[in-house]
Design a protein around this nucleic acid. Structure first.
Lengths: 245, 245
DNA sequence: TGAATAGTGTCTCTAAGACATTATTAT
DNA sequence: ATAATAATGTCTTAGAGACACTATTCA
């Protein structure tokens, strides 16, 4: 059924007045670039376009519970830390009916991100191409990773380009003064990996000594004593994130 | 009708599944302290408690339009700058039925705040007592201004103490790097007034020379050439806020 | 030893805090 | 002149950026 034919036969009033959904940005890093897990829609509306995993909020379900359920149903993940991003309420953001959506952000370390992309039913990673390096905003484009079949930017459904953009902006804003960055790393990591994460999200290079000083002075890093193996050079120290009490 | 009697006769299923509202924090300063405009509920549920102005979101109304309408209907104000704060979705935040609410923040300069308190149907200013001086959060207490009849803290309806707390936190976070602070001032103001606003919101004293340097270096302040009158000492220069292009 | 990255020492620069001093008005 | 606050000069200090240098591992 074509998009137009679908809309012609769709009866919005059959669905009541106003619906509430959650959409979850499952953000991780792929080859050192920010990426999100997206789902290809195979039903109208907007069949063939790529969308964030989402779902309706139940009457006896909190917003966080709905987001967690979506995560479980669509990515096989549960219990991730969720942060509310923003609530999108434009009248025509969904062509079926009036749907207001609360957007959430969840962060995955690189291995969990790759695993979810393999196990999640139809979830595929898409590298986010952020056209703004500074603090300005605007929608973003996404692209299938190099190893995929698709070429060119992937078409995004609804207002999901705006939601993705907001996720990046929010992350950038909190990165330096909060501990969100660690959610994108495995349990044990090197200072270089931590800096790579920050640079990937911020989209700019950072000064190494200053970065190390700042991070170590925060008191969030606990040296494990172990060092990373498998390098052909001086092995870096492994750290663990430790919540400042 | 008592609160219990009301709840006993109330049929939640008659209202459908899930409703969406907006609640607006109308924030201003009163005697140099942050204050919000509140409404005394005279119907159950929670009759007698103090609540933020709010209302249901129409099917063909954006969230911002709903917030603007609430502002117009309850405070006689329109076209104010609105900032979305957060969406509150706890199951039992309203005893009648499942109501999810999108909270908005609007800022008023001191004179407009006082005028809205006079003209708004039942809107009364309440000084916000923030128990945390740093960055920590938690609900806040409100109190009628000294000149009023009431004594002691005013009881707040629903989760509105949390909403008010979030408004303060958000404002504090944006105060130093954005131009929100100017929305709490009249068109022309002195640097001391600007500093007073910042100190009232932050809850801490600021260093005068450093504050002046920072503000002037921002390029947002345009000297008017005029000076404030009516002082018995050196009259301060009046500035105007000018959006940095 | 050479290559490669880890990790650090140090200088400079910027901006904030502290504190004192000068400026300007009304009484 | 005095009182009161505006407005600024300057010293100190904290932290970031720049850049070079040392450290450590494998091949």
């Amino acid at each position: 059924m074509s998009e137009d034919a679908f809309l012609a036969t769709y009866d919005p009033s059959a669905y009541g007045r106003l619906a509430l959904t959650v959409d979850v940005v499952l953000l991780g890093l792929r080859d050192g670039r920010p990426a999100a897990l997206l789902l290809k829609r195979d039903e109208p509306p907007q069949a063939g376009l790529w969308a964030l995993p989402g779902g309706f909020v139940g009457v006896a379900e909190t917003l966080e519970a709905a987001a967690d359920r979506v995560l479980r149903e669509k990515a096989g993940l549960s219990g991730l830390h969720l942060e509310q991003l923003y609530t999108f309420g434009a009248i025509d953001r969904d062509p079926r009916m009036r749907i207001v959506s609360v957007a959430y952000l969840a962060l995955l370390p690189e291995t969990a991100f790759a695993a979810a992309a393999r196990n999640g039913a139809g979830l595929r990673p898409a590298v986010i191409e952020v056209p703004w390096a500074g603090e300005a905003g605007g929608p973003v484009a996404v692209r299938a990773p190099e190893d995929g079949q698709e070429r060119g930017p992937l078409p995004l459904a609804f207002d999901h380009a705006d939601i993705l953009a907001l996720a990046i902006l929010r992350l950038r804003g909190k990165l330096d003064y909060s501990s969100v960055g660690f959610a994108l790393l495995p349990d044990r990591f090197t200072l270089r990996q931590l800096q790579d994460v920050h640079e990937a999200i911020l989209g700019t290079a950072l000064n190494k000594p200053a970065f190390r000083r700042r991070m170590l002075d925060r008191g969030w890093l606990e040296p494990t004593g172990a060092r990373a193996a498998g390098t052909s050079f001086r092995p870096p120290e492994l750290y663990r994130f430790r919540q400042p009490r």
